[in-house]
Design a protein around this nucleic acid. Structure first.
Lengths: 359, 359
DNA sequence: TGAATTTCCGTGTCCGCACACGACACGAAA
DNA sequence: TTTCGTGTCGTGTGCGGACACGGAAATTCA
């Protein structure tokens, strides 16, 4: 494709077009103060030999600094958002020489007000771009509306809010990933099998992601006409009381004798795994989401059969990269970016994690 | 982690160490002509404030050119090696401003002599680095031995030859991927099911990859004690005569009435899919390797149930990146790199391909 | 018509680094 | 003492591009 990669410098362009280097510069950057004649001459030369500027040299020379701010939930070691954090760090490292500096801000994903506070802080000293994990829809919309008003670009990761005027979105198609989960979990299930579907009570509005996954899951059952061949057993977990959950489960098992599979739509499948282990209910096909350390542990032990992953680090990294392409390099970018629905099992988790780590 | 990323330039180091910039440069590049005293002073300052050079500026200033040559099989559109090719192209684009220029050389993977010829060509005008897909073991060893003798670094992609002194290897753990294929294919197979295992006659030595996959596949059967619950039906295909293969299959089906699944260990599962379709044998669980256009087509149609992929473009790209890290940036690299064993189904193939395309 | 603007454009400097060149000191050989 | 290495080191220039500055030409205004 890119065949004529002769090393073309501005100097050469200037000679060919019969103007000065300064003029070429003006045309390249679409500055106003160029006569129509000069502009035309340069443009012509420019796309005859399709010139691409040396981005390295460009950033070297440019003294413009960029401040990017990320805002997403706090986390503890081994949790989901830690991987996102790593992705931002990697981007920070990669793009620091292009004069972009990344700040990370965290909020409590169970506390709306904490998001509002942090987002206000961000608005105080205006950054050049913002990356948001839109956990709270309304509050995020308030925030992004203000950003738009001030002409600050922003991108979504993890999930999106369609009404907002975001630059890019990186995240998984959760409906599809729920559909796939069903397919993996329910393939060749015997007649009459009972399937445990765990949901966690959450204060405030439930997460979009888990809801869509659940819809996808149900859609599969409907598509394949499984609703009268298997039985879905809905269970509601408490978010903090593990003993209560154990009791709930015990009770369920005492009244359901043919439970063959189980799923959770959030990333906390390790809790279910742990409870099932405690109950010695080991012969249950189990599937969950995201590579939390604990999840991976149970996957490797064979308690969890499948984990579905969504490359959180890449979501962060590519968001930053695309923002640079937009603001600095002026390259084409794509708005909606679905990350792959990665299927992990005991046997392929190791290589997968090693490879991601190393980018 | 990388907290103290103050913008430190050579100039600053020089001042702090009380020497000239030239001297700092000599220390940084381990040149000989520095007095022990100066060297020590600079070194001390250097690791007090841990300095990291601006790689952009470095490449900009350096006039050294690097010529990298890749040698791998020819391909037609939509085939496996095309993706590898794309990966090299992307790397070429990315690293051209670091003064590396990539040449691609192709050989006929069914003709040993063509490999020998091309590798000799490469030796004629010595490149700075070589990337090899070691299809022919002995001939590759001859080649790499000569490269080693001339101190030309080389890397393997796709498969490796342990005896050679390669810089990096990117490829899939084929044994594991065979194991996984078995797991996906044979999960919950009914008693007495017959499983079709297709192998293709190949002139010369068979491919390492397909052989290891087959071993992994069999290992799963052994591990799970399936050998007396299911029956493996081995079938040998011709590489070119599709009519003959059709006849073979027809014959097999006439003598085996309980065929439930089928697999090929090379990337040509689309041929099997096509034959099965022709024979109206549609209710067979089918799995294969690699995202050839044709394979993807059958996957999307639901004829193929699973495809196992191995990110060929990333193998190529990262090989080049690591070579740059070694020769130019002097960074740490890892020798053996297993790429993930990606599991693709009808429902996740689309996002997967879109995402890879966009890197 | 001369002065004041406005429009257009060329030059010079710097970004952080690599490298060639030449300067300088010192000691040994002539 | 002169001459000539040898071992150290400082300076200058350039990589490709961004941008400020100021000058010249074109235009407007008095």
């Amino acid at each position: 494709m890119a065949e004529n990669n002769q090393k073309l410098r501005i100097k050469d362009i200037a000679v060919l077009a019969g103007v000065s280097e300064g003029t070429v510069d003006r045309v390249l950057h679409n500055r106003g103060d160029v006569s129509a004649k000069s502009r035309e001459a340069v443009t012509k030369v420019l796309d005859e030999m399709n010139y691409s500027p040396n981005l390295l040299a460009r950033s070297l020379a440019s003294k413009k600094q960029y401040r990017f701010v990320c805002i997403f939930p706090t986390f503890q070691s081994g949790e989901y958002w830690e991987t996102v954090d790593k992705g931002f760090d990697l981007a920070a490292q990669e793009f620091q020489h292009h004069n972009v500096f990344i700040e990370k801000k965290y909020f409590n994903q169970y506390d709306t007000q904490s998001f509002v506070n942090v987002s206000n802080e961000i608005l105080q000293n205006e950054p050049d771009a913002v990356f948001v994990a839109p956990v709270f829809k309304n509050e995020t919309l308030d925030f992004t509306a203000e950003l738009s008003k001030r002409h600050i670009s922003f991108s979504f990761i993890d999930s999106q809010i369609e009404e907002a005027n975001f630059l890019t979105y990186y995240g998984q198609n959760s409906f599809k990933s729920g559909y796939i989960a069903a397919k993996l979990l329910l393939a060749l299930m015997p007649e009459g099998a009972q399937i445990l579907v765990i949901r966690t009570k959450r204060k405030g509005s439930g997460s979009n992601q888990t809801f869509s996954r659940s819809k996808g899951f149900m859609q599969f059952i409907q598509d394949k006409g499984l609703s009268n061949r298997i039985e879905i057993v809905n269970v509601e977990f408490s978010n903090d009381d593990e003993l209560e959950n154990l009791a709930t489960l015990k009770q369920i098992f005492s009244t359901h004798s043919n439970i063959k599979a189980a799923i959770t739509f959030n990333s906390k499948v390790y809790r279910l795994a742990s409870l099932l282990e405690a109950l010695k209910e080991t012969n249950i096909r189990l599937i969950g989401y995201d590579l939390l350390d604990e999840n991976v542990k149970y996957l490797q032990q064979g308690v969890i059969n499948f984990l579905i992953a969504q490359r959180p680090d890449k979501q962060a990294y590519f968001s930053v990269r695309d923002m640079c392409r937009e603001l600095i390099f002026r390259q084409e970018i794509k708005k909606i970016n679905y990350v792959p629905i990665d299927i992990l099992m005991k046997e392929n988790i190791e290589d997968y994690m090693q490879f991601s780590e190393y980018i």
